[in-house]
Design a binder for these strands. Structure first.
Lengths: 230, 230
DNA sequence: CGACGAGTTGACGAAACTCAAGAGTCGTGG
DNA sequence: CCACGACTCTTGAGTTTCGTCAACTCGTCG
């Protein structure tokens, strides 16, 4: 289960918002030799409401964060990929995990001990700034998500998501969905059924789907629709 | 426009998550003598996407944070009261404000310079921890909000909100809405019309409304409904 | 082959928004 | 003191959106 980091792993850690501005020595001193956690698809990495003893950086794979509501239904909060970190704010403040984390596909993550981090932070103000930057980024992501949930229809949110995948491209674009459709649906706050229908409706705006491949006839046209809704 | 802090003001600042664990001397050194901003109802304190030069602590009144979407519609993110801080993460990381802030009623806030804070943070690791704690708390609030938007119906969200106001009380409870109904509606992600109707529907569950006074016949019954939805 | 899970599709109903009109409240100015 | 306008809140009617339940297809894997 526990391994040590490869050369490639260190490169990915170095690209993270947390360690990007830290020198390699400082980074290595925070990460133990047996810090790598290999998790299979469906494995739980940490559970909502349990004490936050560690935080994590993703080396490979995909991790979804979700919350379980009082009535048992679950809300997917976000889905993260390589070199992204999660649970740092919880671990640092000694709180409980505010979401559960589960591997969407087989993944590898680095587990970093919170107590060690807390000791280091007193000595290194740069580390504090890095953590604050990361927390600030997460705040921004969540704010955007709330804005979209409150102001956009499900159709618009889906179009927006596809456009996010398309990136800054123009004209025709072909992309593949990064993970299962039911997950995308949950991420966007709708049911798989609605997702399927909505995707069908977008055909009218030049979006074609086959399997997990999505083709956009004209990115700008879709973007225009998305902002105007209509 | 600019005043200095009264004795009471310092007390309120001391109760904030940011300065609660800091000694008074450290707090005073961060806050200038003319730091108090008196804002009238409707005044804007800062604007989304502008560079974050300061952050704020509320002394009195109510401040709403909101985002303007691409299509012009606005999403209320949160509403804060005395001794709560906002924009600290943005100010500290030198980013732009991720929401706009506007006074809901006549209010007084302390403006704190971000550059000063950034200098201090290197010297005082406690300050860094206080800021991280505050950011972590905000993250938690937003997560909860996303969970509720994704899993609860508007009716359940409204019931939940009323229960929040009722606090840990049991049995019969009479409370008054903290601010205009249209604001509450926006906060819960619905239109004023839906809010009005939904409030009417809750009569079936022992909720009576007159003006801004809300009476709950049996808090536990409402709580049960809220968790089961039904 | 058969079981399973993901995805799609259909039918139906409930939830929520829009547009529109009306009631009540408050402050201002004549 | 009253009339007016501005604003909030409510109510009504009609429509759209979205979730639910169910059946069915399809690909995968044993």
């Amino acid at each position: 289960m526990a391994e040590s980091l490869t050369q490639d792993d260190w490169r990915i850690v170095g690209q993270s918002a947390l360690f990007g501005r830290l020198d390699a020595v400082a980074a290595r001193s925070l990460i133990g030799d047996d810090a790598v956690l290999a998790v299979a698809r469906g494995d739980t990495i940490c559970r909502q409401d349990e004490p936050a003893a560690s935080y994590f950086i993703i080396l490979s794979g995909l991790i979804k964060l979700f919350r379980r509501a009082a009535d048992g239904s679950i809300a997917i909060i976000s889905i993260h990929g390589p070199s992204q970190s999660f649970m740092e704010a919880e671990a640092l403040t000694g709180a409980t995990y505010s979401t559960s984390a589960e591997a969407v596909v087989d993944s590898r993550v680095v587990r970093i001990d919170a107590a060690t981090l807390r000791r280091r932070i007193s000595a290194d103000p740069k580390l504090a700034m890095a953590l604050l930057g990361s927390a600030s980024m997460h705040l921004r992501m969540l704010l955007e998500q709330i804005e979209k949930l409150k102001t956009m229809t499900a159709t618009a949110r889906l179009a927006d998501f596809i456009l996010l995948l398309a990136g800054p491209r123009e004209g025709r674009a072909e992309i593949s969905l990064p993970y299962e459709k039911r997950l995308v649906a949950g991420h966007l706050g709708m049911t798989p059924e609605s997702f399927s229908r909505t995707l069908g409706q977008l055909r009218r705006h030049g979006v074609h789907v086959e399997r997990d491949k999505v083709t956009i006839d004209d990115v700008d046209r879709l973007r225009a629709y998305c902002e105007a809704d209509e």
